[in-house]
Design a protein around this nucleic acid. Sequence first.
DNA 1: TTAATAGTGTCTCTGAGACACTATGTG
DNA 2: CACATAGTGTCTCAGAGACACTATTAA
Lengths: 240, 240
Amino acid sequence: MPPSPDEQAFLDGYDPAFFERPSVAVDVVLLAPTEGSLHTLVIQRQEHPFRLKWALPGGFIRMNEDLEAAAARVLREKAGLKGIFLEQLGTFGAPKRDPRTRILSVAYMALVDQERFSACKAGSVVARLVVPWDGEEGGPVEVLDEQGKPMPLAFDHAEILGLAVKRLRGKLDYTPVGFQLLPKAFTLYDLQKVHETVLARKLNKDSFRRRMLATGLLEPTGEQQDDVGHRPAALYRYSA
Amino acid sequence: MPPSPDEQAFLDGYDPAFFERPSVAVDVVLLAPTEGSLHTLVIQRQEHPFRLKWALPGGFIRMNEDLEAAAARVLREKAGLKGIFLEQLGTFGAPKRDPRTRILSVAYMALVDQERFSACKAGSVVARLVVPWDGEEGGPVEVLDEQGKPMPLAFDHAEILGLAVKRLRGKLDYTPVGFQLLPKAFTLYDLQKVHETVLARKLNKDSFRRRMLATGLLEPTGEQQDDVGHRPAALYRYSA
DNA sequence: TTAATAGTGTCTCTGAGACACTATGTG
DNA sequence: CACATAGTGTCTCAGAGACACTATTAA
């Protein structure tokens, strides 16, 4: 059958010179469990638009660079972090999301444990923030500084942050994603605290232990906690 | 604190003329439950690359067009469908996914009931295919024509189709997404058949009924089936 | 010994599967 | 009436919460 005019237009449309093209950036939501709540990194903008507002670390993609590679590069350049778990959240492309020109943003979620997160802020211009959240779904995120004062966000970055927390919560029970928020060796209670931090609610200790051990994803390292002032807990590692 | 060289580069980098830009397209996976399996639409390419291979309906985004609006336009132009449920699946951007030039594809999933799906093929160049799938996760999808012969797909469209089915399965139990695959009024058994089609496995009738009625999302229309040769089932509608 | 948390055994409650039974249409 | 599917009532089983109890370390 001959192609319809619509299809012909599509098939002829491969010459990119015929089309105006948008700019494409990646923005990274780095999440870490700290002091009982999720923290992230944002950068204060020094130029218009959204001057002095806070923005997610991001950057334009390069023409021969994979999207996830661009996110990893941003994380390396802005936070000094390498080898971090990354997952694509989605692409934000409202025509006026950036008032200057059409810029699409492919958003990524990056997960890191508290220790590496704390280390990466040293000598860097990044800021460290609290992301509170109530309810299983929640609305737009509020980002607070160390004094608990709300920090206004640039662009649609509040929406991106909200999506990141929602995605993380949704995957926590059904995938091993929670282990990305812990160091290599951890106790069952460490794991529970991470889950409680992400979900922002207390969990039942007994059934949490049973559920985690039943997954078969935990392997005892044979080691124990040390210097804890009480019975030391067994250490586990995430095994495939 | 003064911006670091990295941050300054980022902040200065907003002039898009400094950057080569990729082309951005949307591709739409239209899914409908038909004859006990999921079906989708693909279009046979008439030009290189991937000449005579099958491709998802797609098209380049326009500069003042929202991403989801572009997906809706593609669905209207290629399948004659309006007002269809759309959800973004993710963005595919491997540098060599299109051998001609850098083209990112923002993939969307579209859900439609069997009746509207069957109606939309008339007078159109689109093809109607079976998408089998075994196992809860599964690998790359195989697409079969009406004779059960595999249809080779262009670009990374097999991967996109796989993601669509996986996403639909994952959301079926936790969101009202299944109702998008049914007409306005349906029986509980219709709903069960849709779930069984999506998941590709049989479900327990009793607990499925209890579970669905317990959600509170079903409202009896007061009507019944007609001319069915047995006790007619009550009709329900999806209520918010 | 005491304090503090780790870890176990067991009861109960809830939701899913299984299955028997009743209800209501067509022919 | 027979037959087919709609829909209900109830038993059982598996997993989560609750809670009591034992274990092991530091001070």
